[in-house]
Design a protein around this nucleic acid. Sequence first.
DNA 1: CATTTTCTTTACTAAACAGACAACTATAAA
DNA 2: TTTATAGTTGTCTGTTTAGTAAAGAAAATG
Lengths: 204, 204
Amino acid sequence: MGRVSDAKMRLMDAVLELLWTGSYGSTTIDQICEKAEVKKGSFYYFFESKSELAAEALAASWQDRQAELDRMFSPMVPPLERLRKYCDFSYKIQQEIKQKYGRVLGCPQFALGAEVCTQEDRLQKKIQEILDYKRRYIESAIRDAHAAGLVHAPDAAAKARMILAYYEGVLTQARIQNDVEVLRDTVGGMFAMLGVKEETAAAV
Amino acid sequence: MGRVSDAKMRLMDAVLELLWTGSYGSTTIDQICEKAEVKKGSFYYFFESKSELAAEALAASWQDRQAELDRMFSPMVPPLERLRKYCDFSYKIQQEIKQKYGRVLGCPQFALGAEVCTQEDRLQKKIQEILDYKRRYIESAIRDAHAAGLVHAPDAAAKARMILAYYEGVLTQARIQNDVEVLRDTVGGMFAMLGVKEETAAAV
DNA sequence: CATTTTCTTTACTAAACAGACAACTATAAA
DNA sequence: TTTATAGTTGTCTGTTTAGTAAAGAAAATG
């Protein structure tokens, strides 16, 4: 009962866009409100701080993303093909982003995580959680690839951490250089790290 | 002639520490001045903005770092050992940093680059320049390793970009997770990417 | 239709902030 | 010892910022 509103959602959309196209420290509550067309009084009705809004918005956007990852990393998909799909997907997303904003923006969690990790503990926890979810998708693909004899990776967890670091590193490099082409052969680096033979790689 | 001063240097030291332990957006000119024990009037005597100070400070600190890299990447050092020395060096630095600040701080250029790339053009250019210098060290090591038959890497430039992305990714992950152990086997990932055989890797 | 609840709006405070300026001080060189 | 130069200081400006509070408007429910 009572009045209904989508202001909360508009605030979450606004903050995500501002964080991604700019940075956490440079986006103000006033800016967020202006972009969301919400008065500051309403902002404080829904959230108690910028960091709380950011954490909630990140969590919500991860929910959406997760559904897509579930499809890409389905056990029905051959394990190495999962990684390829993931890289193709990132490449496509970044191309669209560049079309839309005139800039490659990379991975919002990773960029934000590196920025706020020494300052915003609550937000930081949420980001670590999301990055850990990502790692698990990769880890299960590696484990399946190992079981199928496609790669030799007895320690799938360590390999997954390595590959995630590489993946995020490449995306961040693309952001810094504002160049999607950096992402062209991301999967090549992953396969090299896993010691996938060239013939196998080509077949995937 | 005239009065002498080390205020400029103090300001550069202060901003580097604040950027590294915090972020660009969250450090204010007042904070920098306070840490450097310099009045704001003097700040504006030496620099016209925070971004100019940051760019100069980054360039100066890179100069120091470069001498160490020249030693590590000397053509007198076997090419794969250069990479190993580089990883060992990073690990040691981050351990010291964690001792000193209670936190792993990763790579200042990369973190800063990801934060400001959509906003501070001048600063961004300087960061890209420094990251490109780093890439060249790695590239020449790879080229020499290829020439020596240690690895198969006809496109050394592309491989170097990959390895730099991985290296920076791992450092950033260490920052986000505040854990040096993430860096323990950085060189293992590099060698895997280069397809170095285990026997060779152990020998380096 | 009334009333309770949910949301919105406006106006406000106090602090932090960037940036400018004129007066002041130290010192290297003439 | 003078003087030009390089650097310092305190004070002031206006603006942007986070955050509050109280009154008002819409709508779901009885």
